[in-house]
Each structure stands twice: as C-alpha cells, then as structure tokens.
Write a protein that binds this DNA or RNA. Structure first.
Lengths: 202, 202
DNA sequence: CACTGCACATGACAAATGTCAGAAGGCCTC
DNA sequence: GAGGCCTTCTGACATTTGTCATGTGCAGTG
C-alpha cells in the first residue's frame, strides 16, 4: 500500500530534490507539488493526498494556515510540517491546527520518509529538540492585546500609528507596550518585539 | 571529465537531497558535504573540490566568509553560492569575495547542474532576477560609520549602549542615526535598520 | 591651495517614548 | 457578591529620541 504525498515548498531546488528522494522509497509516491500556500491547497483538493508535507514559510499562506484549511476540507489527509527555523511558538500553533508532525529540515531524507509513514499511520511525531525548546520557552505571558500591539509595533511604527491601527488611544498603546516590555524583562519595545518573535509569541 | 563538487548546507534534508540529485548527472560527483562554515573549509582542504556549492546562511561562518577563505587557500576551486533569501547586498559582497555564481534556491536541480558546469568552466553566473534587484537597490548611501552605528542599533539597543560599544559620544551616535534615517527616507532608526537589512547594506 | 566630504564633537530644543498612579466596566470564579 | 484579571482610558512625569546649528580636524581631489 503506497502513501500518496503532497509536497509544498517554495524552493524549487529543495522540493524537486525531496520529491526525487522520497520517490526512491517503494511505499511513498509524490502525487503533487506546490510552491505556495494557496497552490498547496488547490493541489490537495485535486489530488487528495494521504499526507501533506508543508514548509512552514511559504508565500501566500504559511504552513499552519494551510494545515487549518486542509483539516476542514480533507480530514483524511494528515499534515506534516517541515521547517528551517523552528520557533517554539510555531510548534504550538501547528499542533493546535491539527498538524500531526513537526520536523526541522536538519533531519535526513531517510528519517523524513519514516516520519511520513508514522504520520500516515495516524501517529504524531514532533522533533524532540523542537519539543524541548517549546517547553522551555513556555507559554506567552502576554495578553491578547499586548501581543496585538506588539505585533503592530514590529515594523518600527510610532505609537501614534499603532494607536490608529489598533483603534486605541495612544496612552493605552503605551501602557500595553510598557507592560509587555516589563513582562519580557527587556530594555524597550524593539527588543520586546524581537524576543516575542524568537519565541514565536507573535 | 567529472566535476568534483563540495556541498555545504546546514539542512541535512536539503543537502542530502541535493547530493542525490546532482549525483544523477554523469559528469558531477559530490565528493564532500558539510553542515557549517568551518566544516566546509575543512572538507574543502581535505578534498580539494573543483566547485564548492555553499549555502549563504550557515552556522559558524556564512557562505561569503567561507568563499573568501577558499579563494586564498584553493584558487582552483570555484565557488557557487545558493541562497533562500537573496538580499541585494549579499550578491555584491559575494561577488567582491570572488564568488563565481549566485543563485536562489528556487531554481531546479537541472538548472543548478548546468550552472555548476558553467562555473566550473570559469564563467560567471548570477541569477538575472537577483542581479536586477541588486542594480535597482543600488549602492549603499551610508558612510562606514553610519552603517556601523546602524548595525549596533539593530537589536533595539538604546543610544547609550550603542555609544559605548562604538566608543563614540551619544550625540555623535544620534547624529549618525539621524543622517542614516534621513538618507534612507524612513521614519525612525528601527525602520532604517530594517530597510538596510533588506537591502543587504548592513 | 581651496573645496568637499567624512569623522567626531557639543549644546539646545522639540517630539516621542517609558513609567506610574488611578479609575471604570466586563468577565470569570470561588 | 467579592475579589481578581483584562481592557481601556486619562493625566503627569522623567527619560530617550530626533533634529538642528555649529565647530574642529583630516583626507582626497581638482
């Protein structure tokens, strides 16, 4: 019984190479490839794969978003996320979206093939190191608004702009920013943004 | 006549897949693989490849640094850089370091194989799109100090800290920051940092 | 040699930001 | 229903920035 696989990654080089390698496995068959989030969805609808191997960062819609949609449209399709930069928060989001596997690109193709089988069998697989990171990073100490404001502050926008975009008063924005900064124990909001990014909290 | 290739990329999955694909070509032989900058150098010394295919972002030392060292130690080895995120400035730095080829990971393995041959033959190859970006991005308008200060400002450090680390007075730091901001035509230093990053000027 | 551009500085002012106290309404929980 | 936490606001204050004018010294260039 062969496992029908959908491969989505925006880097042609990697996608092609991966497809070739996975095809060497007798029980795996790459039935579709995609280079963007929306394309991955379309391909999934057209080919109904057993397992979707998605890159976390893709143009259009990221792996987690695609996974969420897939979950709703093709419940029989298991999702496995592959990523280069494993931020702890992403793992949490991915798991919440019903993703069954989460691995860094540092694994070998051999291992990936095994993991695809694991996931296809209905089991979960999370890279132990990423899992450890996620646990040690813990939950976000930020409230919903704090995170929202921090996100709007991400591109260096002044408070006035953040306030406008969030439909809040400037004072409120500064308060949220201030409390986020103190919760994260950093110097200023820009460092806060970076830290929250690293931890995957925004 | 076969081309002896060194492959360096920190992502095992990609490296392995690439090695497999390139090995399908009759005239290419992957003689060594590395997962970090220093390792790439060591492997190059040991195996003296004809062409080194380096990922731009690797732990230890990035592709351009490795290229610089290789240039000095193994003049016969041509360097080809492969990257996911092609920032215009990187291309310039790479070319200055004597790199013969620069391509994004969105090319196919087929194309990559051709480009390896091109580079091995002593010719240069730069992805047209990246080249266009680099040209349109132009040269950095920043002076050496401005760039230096901007870099120190990158992690959201306050002026006082930047001043200390650069051994400058706070006023001077603010002046540099201010002139960088106005040269880049952005709102504040944080946006300046982001823009300079994007353009590869820092 | 005068001119230009860069490095570096000071001082002063305006604007943005960070911090704090306080206060009101909403929601949840014991 | 009292207490706790979140959201939202205001006002006041200290600190940090951004901006500008202005100065010196040094290197390179026509």
């Amino acid at each position: 019984m062969t496992v029908r696989v959908l491969l989505a990654d925006d880097e042609h080089l990697i996608r092609g190479a991966l497809a070739a390698l996975l095809s060497l496995e007798d029980d795996l068959m790459v039935v579709a490839e995609a280079a963007s989030g929306p394309e991955a969805l379309a391909m999934a609808r057209a080919h109904e794969p057993d397992v979707a191997v998605l890159d976390l960062q893709m143009p259009g819609a990221d792996g987690v978003k695609v996974a969420t949609s897939l979950r709703a449209e093709l419940p029989g399709c298991q999702v496995l996320i592959v990523t280069s930069h494993g931020r702890p928060g992403h793992l949490k989001r991915a798991l919440a979206a019903g993703v069954r596997g989460f691995v860094p690109k540092t694994v070998s193709a051999q291992r990936l093939a095994e993991i695809i089988r694991t996931v296809h069998a209905g089991n979960r697989y999370v890279d132990p190191e990423l899992a450890a990171d996620a646990i040690s990073a813990g939950d976000s100490p930020l409230t919903a608004r704090e995170a929202e404001v921090l996100e709007l502050a991400a591109d260096g926008a002044p408070v006035a702009e953040i306030a406008e975009r969030a439909a809040l008063s400037q004072g409120t924005v500064r308060n949220y920013l201030s409390s986020a900064v103190s919760k994260l124990g950093v110097e200023n909001r820009h460092a806060a943004v970076r830290l929250a990014r690293e931890r995957g909290w925004v």
